[in-house]
Every structure is written in C-alpha cells, then in structure tokens.
Simulated assay, not measured.
Amino acid sequence: MTDAVLPSHPAIPTTTPMGEAVRTRPQPRAKIIAITSGKGGVGKTFVSANLAAALTRHGLKVLVLDADLGLANLDVVLNLFPKITLHDVFTGKAALEDAVLAGPGGFSVLLAGSGMVEYSHLTPEIRAKFLQVVEAMAPRFDVILLDTGAGISDVVLFSVSMADEVMIVATPEPTSLTDAYAAIKVLATQQKRQHMRLIINQAVRPGDGRAITGQLQQVLNRFVTTEDGQPVRLLHMGDIPADPAVRDSVMRRQLLLQATPGCAAALSVAQLANKIKSMLTT
C-alpha cells in the first residue's frame, strides 16, 4: 500500500470568520457524484470502485471517498489496510493529505473508519469537517465519487447533499426498487433534486434497466413533483448484468476491471464510465 500523490493547489478557505462551513467553488473543480442506494447489499461499493478504475483509464484524476462513515467497507472491497482514516482527520490526529491512499486501479481513496457509532448521527461539527474535506479535495481531482451508505439516514442525506449528480444503484428485486423510490422521493422533496440517475445492477435480461426506469418514472410522475410543479426526471444510466465474475472478484478482493476486464459486467461498467465522461464535457 502506497500513499497517493496529490496534485498541488492553492489554499482555499472553507470556513467563515465565525467558523461556519461554506461551500467554496474554486475552478477547476471536480464533478462530485454520489453513488447511493435505497437498500443495502445492491453492489453500490462495487460500482463505485470499478467505476473509478474505468474513469481513471480515461486519463481522469479520480477520488473515491467512503462516505459511509460508520459502516465503511470500501477498504474490504479494495483489499486495503489503512493506518489513517477520515476518523483520524476529523479528530485532528492526522492531516488530510496523509489519509489519501492510492487505490489498486490508479485512483485515489479516502477511507472511513468502520464501527464508529458516533457517526450514526452527524453533529454540526462533523458536518462542517466533512464538508471541509470534500471542498479541500475538489480542486485536486476531475471526479469525486462519494460511496454513501444505503437508505435515508441523516449521514446519507448529508453526503448526497454535497454532490453535483446523484446515481442510485438498485437491483431488479421489488424490495430494492421500493427502497430506491423512497430514496428518490426524499432527495427530491428535501434537496429539491430535479433529476437523478439510475443504475440497475444484477440485471437479468437486456433492457431490464430501461423498463424499470420507465416504471419508476410513471410513479414519480404521479406522486413526486419539483418546486416548479414538474415531475422528477429519472435518467437511465445503464445496466450491469448478473455475472458470476462479479462475485469471484469481490471474494478475491480484486477490481473486476483488473481480474476479468472482458466479462459482461466489466464491459458494462466501462460503458457507464463513457457516459460519465460525456457528462463532464457538457
């Protein structure tokens, strides 16, 4: 395990004279994308890690930030054993630069501590520090992927609130789709999101994701509207097919794009990365 080398950048203020966190918008600034889900166990962290590797292959500087502060597992997926985590940064035991690691796919990683009960509910102090971390990293990368927890807890909602784009990962299972709808509804009403993007993982048949997106859009049209009275737009980003190679790579703690880059799921992740790269230039 080696430390990531951070690009140099001028210092930027992240607090007011009164000590309040503010969202500065330095240029250039990373596109911040939240990878979230309504239900746990849908492959959200798998998507975040492999998507980061695919984006890195496009020559982009990518950071994956483990935003599931209390139940972090990005380190497990990437087979990393961090000595310093965001917990150490928040408590002042370590500098932020020392917590940034090099991931196996060439991207950078900021890992959170696992089993930290104090992060089950965010205090104003932790919110401010979390925001400062994201703002400090934003000028140094092209893309920041926030690998959030599942559901609609205050930790998840605050993490998502920092993102420019929201991508919801779901599977075709009814419970996953029900929870995905609940998350979309909360994000639309509380954060005034006018559009969100959907990734269907473990798709069984080609076209599953587009059909599911259409069905969810119909429900949103009936029950969820934005401030201007328009329905929330749900954009289909793509499907990742059910593929035994995924389970094999997860069990071996390897990136799918490195272990079996030619499998169907890996090719689908690469297509997702192509779409995201197109988003960056529009």
Rank of each mutant, 00 (worst) to 15 (best):
L69P: 05
P172Y: 07
V77L: 13
A94H: 06
L65P: 07
M162K: 12
I84T: 15
T148A: 05
M167W: 14
V117Q: 15
V76E: 11
F46R: 08
V143R: 10
A102M: 15
D75P: 10
S37T: 02
D142V: 05
A53L: 11
L157A: 00
G92W: 08
K31T: 13
R57K: 15
D75I: 09
L69I: 00
P104A: 07
V155N: 11
G149Q: 04
S48L: 03
D154T: 06
T56Y: 12
R29P: 10
L69T: 01
I168S: 03
T85H: 09
S153R: 12
Q132I: 11
K31Q: 14
V155K: 01
V64G: 01
Q132C: 11
Q27K: 14
A34V: 00
E135S: 12
V100D: 09
I126R: 11
F158K: 08
V89R: 02
A49C: 14
I84Y: 13
V62N: 08
V47H: 02
I152F: 10
Q27N: 12
Q132Y: 09
G105C: 11
K93Q: 14
E118C: 06
V77P: 00
G92S: 04
L96T: 12
D66Y: 05
P172Q: 10
V117R: 15
S114A: 15
L74G: 06
V160S: 01
F46Q: 10
V169C: 08
D154G: 04
T45D: 07
A54R: 11
G115L: 01
N73W: 06
V169Q: 03
I168D: 03
I168H: 06
S114N: 14
D154Y: 00
G59N: 09
V156G: 00
I126W: 12
F90K: 06
L101P: 08
A150Q: 02
E135W: 08
E125A: 13
S159I: 01
S161F: 04
P172H: 06
V77M: 12
A128I: 07
A128L: 09
I35W: 05
F130E: 00
V134R: 00
F158R: 06
I32Y: 01
K61T: 12
G115F: 01
Q132M: 13
I168L: 14
G149N: 06
D142E: 12
L122T: 00
V133E: 06
Q132G: 13
F90C: 04
E173V: 04
A72F: 07
L78R: 04
K83Y: 04
V160K: 00
A49E: 08
M137Q: 12
M116N: 14
F81S: 15
A170H: 02
I33E: 01
T45Q: 07
L74R: 11
V77H: 10
F107E: 15
A30I: 03
